[in-house]
Design a protein around this nucleic acid. Sequence first.
DNA 1: TCTGGGGTCCTAGGACCC
DNA 2: TCTGGGGTCCTAGGACCC
Length: 400
Amino acid sequence: MSFPEMPNQEPQAAASPPRRIAHLDMDAYFASVELLRYPELKGQPVVIGGRRRTAATDAQGFQRLRSYAGRGVVTTATYEARTFGVRSGMGLMKAAALAPDAILLPGDYETYSRVSRTFKAAVAELAPCIEDRGIDEIYIDLTDVPGETRDLAQRLKNAVRQATGLSCSIGVTPNKLLSKLASELQKPDGLTILGLEDIPTRIWPLPCAAVNGIGPKATVKLEGFRIHTIGELAKADPGFLMEHFGRSYGAWLHEAAHGRDDRPLTISREPKSISRETTFERDLHPRQDREELTRILLDLCERLAQDLDRKGYLARSVGIKLRFDDFSTVTRDHSVQVPVADAASLRDAARDSLKRAPLDRKLRLLGIRAGSLVREVDYRMQHAGPDRVAEPSLFEGLAP
DNA sequence: TCTGGGGTCCTAGGACCC
DNA sequence: TCTGGGGTCCTAGGACCC
């Protein structure tokens, strides 16, 4: 989670004009992409999730949610499926109980990534200052883009639809925090423009959990203090919040509730870590299922090595992640002297970490992570200067 | 009918160095 | 011999987000 520093204490010499920050969020993204592929499913409850597998299908070749068995969660549900109470993150078995006749489609992340690049490129044609917030959402700084706000936002929506055939929802406000809230207000296909003067009427009635950065834990804790809406949070004493939520987070809660946020857009960033993990079909025992676990770990190492190679990074630390049958999670990290990227080195480093992990109960997940990344080109540059030592010297090993 | 996979950031203690 | 701080790195865990 990230939250801004304390508000700027410096008195502003002159009030800077308000920014125009847009948040653009694709509507039911994965499901909408699938409806482009299968237009005959339009209007039906459709759920994306689970693994690709052979399963019983209906006359048109579609799998129904009721025939699903196994681990997996809903990645995206169409609005029709949501009327049954299906939500993303929900276990598929639970979703099947709610909407047994919903169509279940496996995710096709390559296609979603490609369409994602397409819609972002379409937006960039109109407004180049973009912060990437994942596969289906972006922030856009419209401050210096000429044009009236509503007209501009509508042109962005049109451009996205023209490029992809998909609808999105946009919120435009003076900052990222409010824009993220605004884009949710009229989903799907929404366009919401708010000023600071709209905070009491439009923002304060919303539940605290609507704020980006207030998750399940903080929500429960706030409810314990009878704080349910953002308006109630705004009324809470900042000292009280800092006392119970920590200085930093407490202060941020207060600022957020008042709609204050001066974070700039992050236009580009370097990855901090790259990882691969997998949840098993059935829980595996560290000793009895040792061979299978080894196979899985090696496969994860291979895939992580491919990712590192493709993206051009080396890892200075390698970590493992274990999730046990009781869902408790443990991580172990290992820093390596020489940065690595190949599967064998990842495996060796992972083994070092594994030695320090508790292995007395069944596992449901195994993961491997490359951290403290360095760009391969930068590393080679620094370690292959004029005094390159990689080549064995002709004089090596000769007696003095 | 439990709970995917890929990330970021924050906190906090201990080691180690100055 | 005792007593400090501060800074940085490493490791582990946890909250949160898409």
